[in-house]
């Protein structure tokens, strides 16, 4: 049974609510009955040792697990009061509203401009693309570095810049929630720091759920932290509480570095 404490949504409806979510790969249960509430405009971090199911859980939130042939999801994920896994819901529409940034930067082999414009284009956006691209690049703190070379290939950018480009690309479809799967794990420390600062700023406009294997990163940037172990949610609460005074022994063992 998970220990959940002090999730304050400030009276607003939660951005996302997972209820008894389980994920099966064939016969293996990778995520076991996880329930948690994501408050709006906050950063929620999912931490835990390798293979604990945090990435799998994250991918439930935008139905990316649909793309894996063997995967089966049970339970509910509520977004705006609507269960995302209902029959009538089109995963393509979900992903327009809940974006994702991946572990290794994966820009398309196109120009910087076309990378950011891809999302709006495929979704049938009819407005001013230049405006959207500029706004997105500004929000991801990349505009100053690329405004004069939007036609250059995305591959000409450094790793940290490419990841910020991927973030801009995700923001271009104006999602409500941004999911991040270990976004800084392949970057050097300075680039990592910039991404962390960015996340702190993005919180104003978006709700962010981030998976990280770096505990210190979760401590630095998140408002709420969920600790998962072997597919189960062990403890979920304000980051301050999780790192200074967790209630579960397993949580304390993990954050003090005694295992995992």
């Amino acid at each position: 049974m998970a220990t959940v404490h002090g999730i304050d949504t400030g009276g607003a409806r939660p951005a996302l609510e997972a209820s008894s979510v389980s994920v099966f790969y064939g016969d293996t249960e990778a995520v076991r009955g996880v329930s948690l509430v994501v408050p709006p405009h906050q950063v929620v971090a999912l931490i835990g040792p390798s293979g604990c199911g945090k990435s799998t859980l994250l991918r439930c939130f935008n139905r990316m697990n649909d793309l894996i042939p063997d995967a089966r999801v049970e339970g509910r994920v509520d977004f705006h009061g609507q269960d995302l896994y209902e029959e009538s819901i089109d995963p393509v529409e979900v992903r327009r509203r809940i974006g994702m940034v991946f572990q290794k930067p994966n820009p398309f082999p196109k120009s910087i401009f076309d990378n950011v414009a891809f999302g709006p284009r495929v979704n049938g956006f009819k407005g001013d693309l230049h405006e959207v691209v500029e706004a997105s690049l500004r929000q991801s703190a990349l505009w100053d570095e690329v405004s004069d070379r939007l036609g250059d290939s995305a591959y000409a950018l450094s790793g940290g810049q490419q990841q910020r480009l991927c973030i801009a690309r995700t923001l271009a479809v104006r999602p409500e929630i941004v999911l991040m799967d270990e976004p800084a794990s392949s970057l050097d420390p300075i680039a990592t720091q910039r991404i962390e600062e960015l996340i702190y700023e993005l919180k104003e406009r978006y709700t962010i759920v981030i998976v990280t294997h770096n505990m210190q990163q979760a401590a630095r940037i998140s408002d709420y932290t969920a600790f998962l172990y072997m597919g189960e949610l062990v403890e979920y609460g304000p980051t301050q509480a999780i790192f200074t005074n967790p209630r579960e022994e397993r949580t304390e063992a993990y954050v003090t570095g005694r295992f995992g």
Binding site: R194, E196, E197, R220
Partner: peptide
Amino acid sequence: MSRQARRRHFH
């Protein structure tokens, strides 16, 4: 965000 604005929250 300028180059000086690292760990602004922390500071």
